[in-house]
Amino acid sequence: MNGAVRNTPSAMPVTVVGGYLGAGKTTLVNHLLRQANGLRLAVLVNDFGDLPIDAELIESQDGNVINISGGCVCCSFGSDLITALMDLRNLEPRPDHLLIEASGVALPGAIAESVSLIQDFSLDSIVVLADAETVYRRSRQRYFADTINRQLSCADLIVLNKCDLPGRNDLSETQAWLRNDFPDAACLRTQRAELPLRLLTDKDASGIVAETRVNARTSPFSDHPGYVTSVLEFPKGRDPNAIAEVLAHEDSGLIRAKGYIEAADGEVYTVQTVGRRSEVRRSHAGVGSVGQVVLIAPEWQVVPAKLADVLGGRVHLD
């Protein structure tokens, strides 16, 4: 999967949110919408059965479209995702980022494949939620064991949710199992699906890539303690593919990275990773902060110094 999906500048980035019933997908979507802060998020959900959006966020509803305060929108796609995606292309103003909430029995990887069929969208990442209390048991249970394993195995990020519920031992065992069986995913813990939006998108409300505002060595997220962001600087002439490979490696401890590297050929390349997924593409002229890569990691990871060491970059200090 690494490097397989290539962004085009106009393509709308897509996050697929999967996981079995009750894992917290709807809670996550609502939590992300609360953080949008002007960023126009579009949300596609399977159905509106149990209202997927918290009532206080809803501005108005018109058939299968819910308008959410702050310019976000939520649509139901029923059993026809492709048509919903095609309709979404005509939405004005154009959303900045799309979240697709998969049904509990769907394979998020299959949804990601369908996204790849339409030129105007590009997959950013697949996030699979797992109920910390039940996921291991379910992954061994009759009927749905293989489905749950297939859901987890296509994840870039596994979010082990409801971590306030199980006993301590359970949790570390569950996490060890996830790391062992699903090495292609970065694994995070949450309670109540409280995931920072910054883990899923590089843009903020003004569409500016967030790194330009980062100026500390490691800055904790103000609204989500537990995650830190930091910036690595690279001189000209470094191989962006080699950098991407290290950033996407399990040992990097990173959840997400994005930046611009000027390679030996004088071209600027965008380097982007989510979990083990990485991509490198030629960048357009005029991108800011060439030579800087913004990293996002859980705070307990001693990321920047270690990576700087491996990559020969240096931690940005100003």
Partner: peptide, 12 residues
């Protein structure tokens, strides 16, 4: 719009 390289779908 499907006659293009880079399609990554098990059904295509």
């Amino acid at each position: 719009g499907l006659l293009r390289p880079g399609i990554n779908h098990s059904g295509v």
